[in-house]
């Protein structure tokens, strides 16, 4: 069960990394955020950074679970 949970964790982390990329890119590109001001852009930037960071941490745990196999 551990490898399955680890693999699902990695999939979820990858999806979140993609989302984090769009958040980070839109912090600088999105017209809506630019119109709403620096606070909206900073929120996108911070949200993207945190999502990316935590997604990497989940991916790392997922890799460890896959490597551990079903050992207790």
């Amino acid at each position: 069960m551990k490898p399955v949970a680890g693999a699902l964790g990695i999939v979820w982390a990858l999806v979140n990394l993609i989302l984090a990329y769009y958040f980070l890119a839109d912090a600088f590109i999105a017209k809506t955020a630019a119109r709403e001001g620096i606070l909206a852009q900073a929120s996108l930037l911070l949200g993207g950074l945190l999502m990316g960071l935590f997604a990497l941490l989940v991916a790392r745990v997922g890799v460890r679970l896959i490597r551990a196999g079903n050992a207790t």
Partner: peptide, 13 residues
């Protein structure tokens, strides 16, 4: 989204 990632990071480990 961040909380779910943190929850998974913590409990999977």
């Amino acid at each position: 989204f961040i909380k779910v990632l943190d929850h998974l990071r913590y409990t999977l480990a």
